[in-house]
């Protein structure tokens, strides 16, 4: 799995997506793997898939609008189905009609997201029923966490990054850090995300992106910027877009 995670750096959205999905499926002891990202509301779009079994299952859920994947996205909780044939019909009525024709028998869905921010879902499928081991589950959770962070990096941040990468200081490092992003996990960052979202009437993911953009362009850490927002020493406006020029508009109390 460590090897798979390395493949994700620096750009998991490249052509290599399908290869990474195959490698990850193998590392997890599964036959297929897919990643879908939230586009609008709870709707998702397929980003990667390793094979037909994974693609078919994802397409089916998309068409029917129900299944473990949509449930994982909606609730933010993992949904594990060790045997699709054993699922009560009432749970996913339309899906259970199709289940006998699907190649996938065991399905494991891991939500990608950060609190109320929904990013997407990682789905692992296997042609034979059965549980996932604790180690495999931990690996899948780790993969989901890395994918979430990569998704939240957002394209808007990629552009100014390239120019400043050489000789980048600490804050640029923070933005580019491939996994974990310990700073992202700070309570004050989540609070500031909520505040910016209410200030600028932006969805939470964009609010977080705006904060990170500001941190990047002002060469400060995300936590410092978040603290300033929460303490109302800093108020982001629609014009401050995280680009170093023109300088972000800062209103002080």
């Amino acid at each position: 799995m460590a090897e798979v995670l390395r493949l994700l750096h620096p750009d998991p959205w490249s052509e290599a997506g399908a290869d990474i999905a195959v490698a990850a499926a193998e590392a997890l002891g599964m036959d297929g793997l897919s990643v879908s990202l939230v586009t609008e509301g709870d709707r998702t779009e397929l980003l990667w898939c390793s094979d037909d079994a994974a693609r078919c299952f994802e397409d089916m859920q998309h068409t029917l609008g129900e299944g473990p994947g949509p449930d994982a996205v909606r609730t933010g909780a993992m949904v594990w189905v060790p045997d699709l044939a054993q699922v009560r019909t009432e749970r996913w009525p339309a899906l259970s009609m199709e289940a006998p024709d699907l190649q996938a028998r065991a399905v494991y869905c891991f939500p990608l997201g950060l609190g109320a921010i929904r990013v997407g879902v990682l789905t692992a499928v296997r042609r034979t029923p059965g549980p996932m081991s604790a180690q495999q589950a931990d690996d899948a959770i780790a993969l989901a966490a890395v994918l979430t962070m990569r998704c939240l990096n957002g394209k808007e941040l990629q552009a100014p990054e390239t120019g400043a990468q050489n000789g980048a200081n600490g804050s640029a490092e923070t933005v580019r850090q491939p996994d974990g992003l310990p700073q992202m996990l700070n309570a004050v960052v989540h609070q500031a995300t909520g505040m910016v979202s209410a200030q600028l009437l932006l969805p939470l993911p964009q609010a977080l992106l705006r904060l990170r953009g500001h941190a990047y362009s002002s060469r400060r850490s995300l936590t410092e910027v978040a603290k300033d927002v929460v303490d109302r020493r800093l108020r982001l406006t629609h014009r401050s877009n995280g680009s170093p020029t023109p300088p972000p508009v800062v209103e002080k109390d």
Binding site: A72, M78, P111, L114, G115, S197
Partner: peptide
């Protein structure tokens, strides 16, 4: 919400809930 009986699911859900709460504190503030 997903009636997950899995230990790992429960841990992850508790962590996620905490983050939601922090985000909402900010929205309300």
């Amino acid at each position: 919400l997903a009636h997950s009986e899995l230990e790992r699911g429960q841990l992850q859900y508790a962590l996620t809930s905490r983050i939601v709460l922090e985000q909402v504190k900010g929205i309300l503030a």
